[in-house]
């Protein structure tokens, strides 16, 4: 069956995926349920309004007391991307280099499937895991309507998609590094370092004036840090994130075709 490799990996990771999604869903529910207690808090708004550094720290572009600001500051600008990257970078490092080190990849690689197909199926498994996490959060954000957290369905869908793509970008870059080096540790280290650098750049660029033009180099800017929750993601956001994902997928495929397996 053509999807068996993806199905196998999803089956093997089902427990951690359920754990990630359930944990994030419960966290989201708590965040939206707490919103009514903070919605009229002027001190919170003063805090971020008068100090751009604090604002950047929370990833808030407007006020914290608006539904969009509240979701940004508590979920989309920090916690969800962090969990998303843990999931995708972890899988990116494990899916090729990690399984090769474990010795299980040779069973897959000895099947009558092209190596490019193996990479594409694993990328699809990564996308499905990321989509599950993003969807679990989105559902509970929409439940937030019952707690006055009113954001448009389109914007929630939009930022869920860009968060998913952000995870895919770094996950696939990690996978490509693993396919190039055959080392899980190298892939994990390099993928995490790139994501941390990108996050730092995105955060600092909004408060350090001379770094401001560099914000475009951060994938966080194109996914969650440019107020996508209130304005919706633009075509440019999608295009950049998708282009990086496709380039990383291509690099992973090329590298894996040349990798000596064990």
């Amino acid at each position: 069956m053509p999807t068996e490799i993806a199905r196998l990996d999803l089956f093997l990771r089902r427990r951690s995926l359920i754990g990630y999604s359930l944990g994030m869903a419960v966290y989201t529910l708590v965040v939206v349920a707490l919103y009514p207690a903070f919605e009229h808090s002027t001190s919170l708004d003063t805090l971020v309004k008068n100090d751009a550094t604090v604002s950047a720290l929370f990833g808030v572009t407007g006020t914290l007391s608006t539904p969009g600001g509240w979701l940004n500051g508590n979920i989309y600008a920090n916690f969800l991307p962090l969990l998303m990257l843990l999931l995708t970078i972890g899988y990116g490092a494990a899916s090729l280099a990690g399984q090769d080190e474990d010795g299980t990849l040779c069973l897959i690689a000895a099947l009558p499937v092209r190596r490019a197909t193996v990479v594409v199926e694993k990328a699809a498994a990564m996308a499905l895991q990321a989509a599950t996490l993003a969807a679990a959060v989105a559902v509970f954000v929409l439940i937030g309507r019952f707690f006055d957290v009113t954001v448009s369905v389109a914007n929630v869908a939009s930022i869920s998609a860009t968060t998913l793509l952000l995870g895919l970008d770094f996950g696939l870059v990690t996978m490509a590094i693993g396919a190039r080096t055959g080392s899980r540790a190298t892939a994990l280290g390099a993928g995490t370092a790139l994501a941390a650098a990108s996050f730092l750049l995105g955060s600092l660029a909004s408060v350090v004036s001379w770094l401001h033009p560099a914000r475009f180099a951060s994938l966080f800017y194109w996914s969650v840090a440019d107020n996508q929750i209130t304005r919706g993601a633009s075509l440019a956001d999608y295009a950049v994130l998708l282009a990086v994902a496709l380039a990383a997928l291509y690099a992973a495929t090329l590298s894996f075709r040349r990798l000596d397996l064990h």
Binding site: M1, E4, I5, R7, L8, L12, D102, G103, T104, C106, L107, I108, L111, P112, V113
Partner: peptide
């Protein structure tokens, strides 16, 4: 393989079923 590594959490039956399906 000389150093056979199986999926630790998959049962024998799951190994047989899944690899048979993957081969069509």
């Amino acid at each position: 393989p000389g150093e056979l590594a199986l999926y630790p959490r998959l049962s024998g039956r799951q190994h047989v079923d899944r690899f048979a399906r993957a081969r069509g």
